[in-house]
Amino acid sequence: MRAMPARITRDDVAHVATLARLALDEDELERFTGQLAKVLQHAADVEALELDDVPPTSHPYPLANVLRPDLPGPTLERAEVLAAAPSTEDRQFKVPTILGESP
């Protein structure tokens, strides 16, 4: 079994906040680190289990091959959709400068 990861650190929290597109100030970083550490501490019972021979369950009710016929359905009114958007231009959604290409 792999070593148990250390309880979450401030750096970990700062890193996941970046991944999750959230900004935290120093106080929040402190507070959230403590709170998350406590929850993860509670999860130590699960972490400690040896479960390599137990398969994971990702769907509680097992189904397979749920497929949709390739038939067109209704589309949305562009005007309605764009009216709900924070910013638009020339029939499209407008966003500020993008730094970096998509991965």
Binding site: M4, P5, E47, L49, P56, T57
Partner: peptide
């Protein structure tokens, strides 16, 4: 690095 220890493990607990 944490998937197996956390999410993956929890999905196995679901089986239990």
């Amino acid at each position: 690095g944490y998937y197996d220890a956390f999410y993956g493990k929890a999905q196995r607990v679901r089986t239990l």
